[in-house]
Write a protein that binds this DNA or RNA. Sequence first.
DNA 1: GTAATTGCAAAAATTTTGCAGCATT
DNA 2: AATGCTGCAAAATTTTTGCAATTAC
Lengths: 138, 138
Amino acid sequence: MILEEIGRTRGHPSASDVYEKVRRRLPHISLGTVYRNLEVLSSQGLISRLDMGSGQRRFDAVTDDHHHIRCLVCNRVDDIRPSANAGIDSIKRDAEKIAGYEVKGFSVDLYGICPRCRSGNTEKVIRDDSRKNNILRK
Amino acid sequence: MILEEIGRTRGHPSASDVYEKVRRRLPHISLGTVYRNLEVLSSQGLISRLDMGSGQRRFDAVTDDHHHIRCLVCNRVDDIRPSANAGIDSIKRDAEKIAGYEVKGFSVDLYGICPRCRSGNTEKVIRDDSRKNNILRK
DNA sequence: GTAATTGCAAAAATTTTGCAGCATT
DNA sequence: AATGCTGCAAAATTTTTGCAATTAC
């Protein structure tokens, strides 16, 4: 059910976003269980974890190769499906040759200002919807 | 002095790593001050923040374009200086055209197993040195 | 009946912040 | 004197975990 709810979301929910969503169907579920299952799902590759520095980890049901961009103002995260994946392979090779790593995965994250925030919506949303103090910072 | 200490480190210290380092020279400095200054420094572009999901944010004194790779076992973070930066520009363009973002920055992060951990050193270091329980997880 | 999973609560870990005092100009 | 920074401590936030109870097989 956790997997279902993540899949149903277009966005990139945090653990507590997932908790809120699932709780509508399983009112007695606990946050600990959500965390434990997110861990299992991501270690099985059924979801992926995003760490883009908005304060919380995000989760993504779409696990095929694509990139992410986070709005520096409102913290929303969107997908980028690149027309060509060029370049990454050469970076991987560099990591293997130069640093001696066995590369297991990668992520390409961009930061910027989303269209919504560029056009006047200048409220600074620091955290996601699950936080208590949401719209703040001047 | 915080900036100096980050610059002196080859690695990618966390806030509390920085705190420990600076404390050797300013024994009375507080962790809050370290956080506040890391924030200032990074907002001025003098250092950069890394969010690679090892549990803590890392900081990097080297702010020119390069990529990072984190060892999934020991959590060390190394630099990758790609021979060519190919591909990123096209991803940026995609973000701007498709998602309508104004792109401010990007990061390319890889994950894998570092040489040290590949060759026998199989201790699982979950957190960095500043944590209390460092070597754990089975 | 055994093993796995859960809820609950507490702990742990990281980051932020209020405030009084110290420093700087 | 006014402003800004700091130390300290507490709070806020996110994530993990111990354990008894429940559920699944």
